[in-house]
Amino acid sequence: MKELSKYLIRVDAEFKDGQIVPEIPYEEVMRLVNEPNIVIIRTGIPQDTLRSIIQATRDWAAKTPLAEGPDTFDNNQHKQRLHIAKIQQAPQLFHDHTFDAILDLEEPMKQTLLSVFNPMRQFWNNLTGNNEEYGIRKGEPYFHPQVTHYPLGGSFFGRHWHPLNPQKVGTILALNQYGKDYTSGGTGYVINDHIVETEGFQDMGDMILFRYDLPHWVSPSSFADRFSWDDPAGRWVAILPFYNPWGTPADKEEPQGWKTQIQSAKNATSEATV
């Protein structure tokens, strides 16, 4: 375990029998996330496996029409997202591939994606004390596996946030290498009014963990490059959200509940000593 900068900690792990096994107990990893810190897990997933996710996703998208209507959360789709979120007013520009019905994919696409998403699912279960499987459950939380491409030339995701529960901890797995496959763009966070940037700290195969209600964003890729939806260059990540699409959305105001709780605890301590 190594502190890379303020609120940014790297934890080594071993990829063993298809599972990501951290060098410290899962409970300790979760404690670090909740303090809060941004924790980067060096998963050890083979690079060939990670690159196969990008290639398989591109091949699938090439023969699958772009989705243009509202999200239904019950299929496998890809969409070129270019809009401003209504509630949080967060602008976004990226190519999103969402596999809500991942178990319905044809082979070998299904097994290729599961070679990464199953270890991510098991790791998240170990962190949160859950035992969740894939599958769509209307009216209940379920997994929404996503492969996201941030093309060169100005793709980004504006500052936004999520309800803490039921996700608890967010997961962002790097599918390619900063400094080689892309040279700008990374995920940033706010902790105790301190800006934490992960650009340049997350290598291929590293998985960022963060408390899910922290305000965060994806910084723009360099405008020095020419933007193209068709060019595969740029940042590729796999994420594994777990939520109920028909549940309560994120608040319009930024959630700083953890900060309020810290202050409340201090006040309670002061009153107890009077």
Rank of each mutant, 00 (worst) to 15 (best):
F242R: 12
Q111H: 13
S221W: 06
H83F: 14
T49C: 10
M204V: 13
I20W: 07
P36H: 06
L164T: 08
E197M: 14
K252Y: 09
M1T: 12
T183H: 11
A85Y: 10
H160R: 02
G188R: 09
Q111I: 00
D213P: 01
V39N: 06
V116M: 05
E3H: 07
L164N: 12
T72C: 03
P151T: 07
R226T: 15
I87S: 07
Q177W: 03
D100M: 06
Y150P: 01
A268H: 03
V190L: 13
T171C: 13
W60V: 10
D96K: 02
H83D: 15
L164K: 08
I136P: 01
S264H: 10
W124L: 12
F242C: 14
S219W: 00
L175Y: 11
V190G: 03
G205Y: 13
H78C: 03
M30R: 07
N192F: 10
H160T: 01
E197H: 15
Y189P: 01
S5Q: 11
D59T: 07
L66W: 04
G129D: 00
L103W: 02
R121P: 02
I20D: 01
Y26D: 12
P151V: 07
F223A: 01
W229R: 06
I208Y: 00
K6C: 05
V33C: 14
W124H: 14
D74N: 13
S270C: 09
K180Y: 04
Q167L: 15
F99E: 02
Q202K: 12
K259C: 00
T72V: 07
F156C: 04
